[in-house]
Simulated scan of single mutants.
Amino acid sequence: MAQDPTPVVFIHGLWLHATSWGPWLDRFRAAGYAPIAPGWPNEPDTVAEARAHPEAVADIGIDDAADHFAAIIATLPEPPIIVGHSFGGLLAEKLMGRDLGVAGVAIDPAQIKGVLPLPLAQLRAGLPALGNPANLHRAVSLTKQEFRFGFGNAVSEQESDELFDTWTVPSPARPLFQAAAANFVLHSQAAVDTDNSERGPLLLISGLEDHTVPDVVTRSTLKQYRDSTAVTELRQFEGRGHSLTIDSGWKEVADAVLDWLADKGF
């Protein structure tokens, strides 16, 4: 009897819509997986709707999102592979720490509790949300220039602008505040069970030109797993920024993930 395809759950980060995973879904489906890309809690179904109703996602926090995706995973026929980008990467790590996935991939993952480096580029990339304390309870949008710095700095200005026009949506600022304060909060929602040695393998991916999650942050994240005997690996991509999942070079990253999964027996 043919084995059912392994489910894959794709989780996007802030300022992108779930439909931005579309090409990845096609690629993984063609490779024999059963992929889905659900939105965050209350996320409208389309980019246009999300832009028209920013209040729908205002005040959503990390645990709200983690519990939302955990509930979706519970409906699947078997534990999935979990792939996340940016804050979706943090959520992938968090869900893997809870043993909810057979394998995980965290692409340019937002910093978890315990990660100390805070480069100036990362501070600048976070200012659209963190610059106003009142944004804690709001959904915040990026300008085209802010997207260019935080996401599209490693592609042409024309491509960055096209990506902005196609995929950007307002996103809750609360997760950024939670991550920024994580090392000063005892029970931070940005905490991940990095000591779990029973979880499946985890791949961290870093774009070396990323401003939003600089490579030094991802390397520091890798060090947080030093007390776990579970497989945790890092793959770095030269010349790539935070847009690496949606820009013209996305296939290189997707195929690297597929190769890694095949190597791990998935």
Rank of each mutant, 00 (worst) to 15 (best):
R98N: 07
H85N: 14
I82R: 05
D99S: 06
I107Y: 13
P79Q: 15
K94S: 06
I107A: 13
G101Q: 02
M96P: 01
P77L: 06
M96T: 01
S86T: 01
I73N: 12
A106S: 15
G84M: 10
D99Y: 03
A103M: 12
P80Q: 12
I81L: 14
T75R: 15
L90R: 06
P77V: 03
L76C: 09
I82G: 00
L95R: 01
D99P: 00
V83K: 07
A92L: 07
A103R: 12
K94W: 02
G104N: 06
L90S: 08
G84C: 11
D99W: 01
L76G: 06
P80L: 09
E93Q: 15
F87M: 15
E78N: 06
A103H: 07
D99Q: 12
A74S: 15
A74G: 14
A106E: 10
P79A: 14
M96W: 05
L100K: 04
H85Y: 10
M96H: 07
E78I: 09
R98I: 05
L95E: 04
E78T: 14
I82Q: 07
L91E: 06
A103V: 09
V102M: 11
G84Q: 12
H85D: 12
P80F: 10
T75S: 14
G88Y: 05
T75F: 11
V105H: 07
F87L: 15
L90V: 07
G88M: 05
G104F: 04
L100H: 03
G84K: 09
H85V: 10
G84R: 10
V105E: 04
P80M: 09
I81P: 03
G97I: 00
L95N: 00
E93P: 00
T75M: 13
E78G: 09
I107P: 12
I82H: 08
E93A: 07
L90W: 06
A103S: 13
I81Y: 11
P79R: 15
H85E: 14
G84P: 09
D99F: 00
E78A: 14
I73L: 09
F87A: 13
L90H: 12
G104Y: 06
V102T: 14
A92H: 01
V105M: 05
V102N: 08
G101L: 03
L76K: 08
